[in-house]
């Protein structure tokens, strides 16, 4: 009976759409093919890392392993050699952790306070320095590499972790400061003014009002910095000594070493291990990562 009334009123809701139109087949077909292409290297990496060397020599890099072995992973983590050291990629992993954690904390602490000062406590000349800073983000690092070597050497920090942490903080500063400045500027000014009227000073407003209100932007900054610093190669190779090399540098040394027989499965396991941290952050953070790179595209 209800059908009668609904016929009288006419069809309701959106017009049912056909799913298999030519247009849809084209759109989804293209996207699926492209996606497969993008996934292919990841697939190859995983498959290669699970095979034994005899199987790799015989077969097809795209085929799944006939016999799964985790030995390449163990070997990459704890036995692979770089030069005289044969304690695997674990050394590089822990070095990268020791580099990334303090660098992320220091660079975000500096840049957030800085962005806050630029947004709410402008002083004469602040904008000039900020403009130079942003312009500096475009200067090729190669121009500044050697002067920084000299500065660090004068301070006695060349080749040390502290020196590298400073370098990461310096080169992270332009984009992070921009990120925080824009965010703090977008917060309602009344809030800041009210706090000032109540007698709160620079630091108090920062810690009690700005900081709690801006956790999302801190997360975006963290994503940006963790992936950026973890993936760094150039600064790691220049400003540290071999036993402090980050994971990327050690990975490159393991895979591209000319001595010995090439063990492709170990190489791919090592490559995957190095990519795991940024991949994990990427898949967990989702939309925030996209937000980070939209702002962080400046970093190049």
């Amino acid at each position: 009976m209800a059908d009668v009334t609904s016929t009288l009123v006419g069809p309701r809701g959106p017009k049912p759409r056909k799913i298999l139109t030519r247009n849809n087949i084209m759109i989804y077909g293209t996207l699926i093919i492209v996606s497969l292409y993008y996934l292919l290297p990841l697939w190859v990496m995983v498959m290669t890392s699970l095979k034994g060397m005899p199987e790799i020599r015989m077969g097809n890099i795209f085929a799944p392993p006939l016999e799964i072995t985790f030995e390449p992973w163990v070997k990459a983590w704890s036995e692979a050699c770089t030069g005289l050291n044969c304690d695997g990629l674990s050394r590089g992993f822990w070095n990268s952790v020791r580099i990334t954690v303090p660098s992320v904390i220091v660079s975000i602490a500096i840049a957030s306070v800085n962005g806050y000062a630029l947004a709410n406590w402008r002083f004469r000349g602040a904008d000039t320095f900020f403009t130079i800073l942003i312009f500096g983000a475009f200067i090729p690092y190669q121009v500044m590499l050697y002067p920084i070597v000299i500065l660090l050497r004068e301070m006695g920090l060349y080749g040390s972790l502290t020196g590298l942490i400073m370098v990461h903080s310096i080169f992270g500063m332009p984009i992070l400061t921009l990120l925080f400045r824009n965010y703090f500027s977008s917060l309602p000014e009344e809030l800041f003014k009210a706090a000032r009227v109540d007698g709160a000073g620079f630091w108090r407003i920062y810690f009690q009002i700005m900081l709690p209100m801006s956790l999302p932007i801190f997360v975006v900054a963290m994503i940006l910095q963790v992936t950026g610093i973890w993936n760094d190669f150039l600064f790691g190779v220049i400003y540290t000594k071999p036993d402090l090399y980050p994971m990327t540098v050690q990975l490159n040394n393991i895979v591209n070493s000319v001595q010995g027989v090439k063990e492709y499965n170990v190489n791919m396991a090592a490559t995957l291990l190095t990519g795991l941290v940024p991949l994990f952050i990427y898949f967990v953070s989702g939309k925030l990562f996209v937000r980070g790179i939209a702002a962080g595209a400046v970093k190049g």
Binding site: S35, P41, L42, T48, N231, F233, L251, V255, P278
Partner: peptide, 20 residues
């Protein structure tokens, strides 16, 4: 899927394609 390679370092990218 299309953006994930951007999260990887150039070192990882280079080594994977060297292999492929």
């Amino acid at each position: 899927i299309i953006l994930y390679p951007y999260a990887l370092s150039f070192i990882v990218t280079g080594l994977v394609w060297q292999w492929v």
